[in-house]
Design a binder for these strands. Sequence first.
DNA 1: TTTACCCTAAACATCC
DNA 2: AGGATGTTTAGGGTAA
Length: 363
Amino acid sequence: MGNERTGTGQSVRPESECLYMCPGAWSQMENHTHTLPSLSLIHSPTNPSKALSLSPSLPQHSATVSASLPLSPASLPQSSPSHLLKSHCLSPSTPSDQDDLTCLNWLHQRNILPLSKMPPLSQYESPSISSLPSSPAKPPYSFSSLIFMAIEDSPDKRLPVRGIYEWIVNNFPYYRTAPSGWRNSVRHNLSLSKSFRRMQRDKSHSIGKGSLWCVCSEYRPALLEVLKKTHYCHSNNSSLLNNPVLLEAADHEQTAMCDTMEISDLVLNNPTLSSNAPCSLIPEHEELVAIQSVELTEEAESEKDPLADSGYIEFHYYQCEQYQYLVLPGNSDLDLETVEILQLDAEAQEAAGSLLDLAGGSH
DNA sequence: TTTACCCTAAACATCC
DNA sequence: AGGATGTTTAGGGTAA
């Protein structure tokens, strides 16, 4: 009965997690390694020069999505990285697909990878693992926004109620396990909101029960605006994402380069990065995670990296004391507080992706 | 405090 | 008949 709209987490992360990094962020980190002389951020264990070959041509959406990825415990894997991969798979695919570690198709279409959002580690020290929530955090979007996105994401810009359900479930894993009352809320919104219109069914082309629903064009800008606001409100952990240029670029499907100056600033101001790690850096578990396949330059092709060939890049996340570490190939350490400005949480990614889609939609 | 917006639940009608 | 869909009402929470 309670309102869970905030979806903010309050639990602790497992001590070691795998992270997912969008190529844009990867590339930008790479581009700024020169400001981090003590860190060799990205290189392959088998080919240290490989990092420079991982320079995907930044796709249209990558600028927006790589602008910020604040980290939140609520959206973090609670039990295992595979759980994270499943629960945060935002691809509209079948359940079987979602069991696949490579199930990031939808995000990949936008060159986005889910990277969990969490506040600095100090905010949730020492809760027990048993207190971890077992399901993904509730998306911050209102039902109107969810319906809007679902309809706009459909080829014909119209969906039956069941199709809306399916879209939401496929894209927001929270609703897979949520009590079914949310469906009632969806119908309630469809009926009550002036933004949505029920279309007369064509009896000759029966779609089964119910009608098709579409977005009223006159309310479309307002719905889009709400999405943008949600996008801003849930990405307040990043000065970068609050840069209007980013969303403006999203609206125009333009590439806006993320200003990563803060990276060097943060790193240079962070004593943990200029000294050795305060404890041994042994992650509790390791996994390979799917990361978007990147287009390699010809040079890279000539120096093949088996990890790159597989489409996987291995790196590890874990916590130690009050710091969060991202261990990249080559045993490099990076305080995640400095990384987060390169990351979008899944929700922000969602918003960004939807906005991008919408921006390139019917207008 | 008010207002607007949102979420949730429930009851009921209609359709398939 | 039963489930899905659609409408309406009611009540509570949150933020501006």
